[in-house]
Amino acid sequence: MRYTQELGKILNKTEIAKGTFDVTLHSPEIANIAVAGQFVNILCDGFTLRRPISLCGFDSKKGILRIVFEIRGKGTEWLSRLQVGDNMDIIGPLGHGFSLIDSSKKAVIVGGGVGTPPLLPVAQFYRENATVITGFRNASAAILQGDFEKAGAKTILCTDDGSAGIHGFTTQALEQYLNENECDIIYTCGPKVMMRSVARLAENHGITCQVSMEERMGCGVGACLCCVCPTKDGKGKHLTRVCVNGPVFSSTEVDWDA
């Protein structure tokens, strides 16, 4: 049995930016086997579909999961109203996560908005060899900068309005970084347009790149075929399930032009 259903008691909950919540849960079975880039599917009372939320952290010793999510609709709004001591009904760990190669390699991590949280465990693996470029609407929407620094990573913050860090997009910062520095591997999660540009830059520089895709999801375990993503390989073009074959794909596997 690869998947577990657990009632995870909420140990901590903080609103780290307007409408963005940082929640830790006691969920020992899932925490024990989770890897970076995986997600859990959370039941929202009164809704048919669970909400897929990526793991921002997992500690097998303490049996703890950390999720950071933004209110996107009524389901996540319901989730945001749960309090410390309440239980979250979760299934997981789901999906194919990031491949972490060798912590002595130089990794560049590019996160856009609420796509940033699943990248924290990647930064914690590469530590001082990680450079984390993240982009947000403005200074008050910027999250997890302290966590990335605590992991030992170098951070480059970008905002759309220039209210913090670099006034501009993560892709501009990435291009400049790659022109001036060594990089062995790139990891990215965020808006599709951003990841597409990151994938192109990676390809132009001949660097391996892993992307975490998002799609409206049904079952979360690969049975319903709702959350497919256009991919390509030697055999042709495919629609591949984000929930089991992804969410993490090699950037060259994704058919960005579909």
Binding site: T48, G75, E215, R216, M217, G218, L225, C226, V228, L239
Partner: peptide, 23 residues
């Protein structure tokens, strides 16, 4: 069959709509 393009699923009151298209 490849099925339909995405989005293929959306929540509704007490249910869902899907348009997988026989992938």
């Amino acid at each position: 069959r490849m099925g339909n393009p995405t989005p293929r699923i959306v929540e509704t009151s007490c249910g869902i709509l899907n348009s997988v298209g026989l992938q």
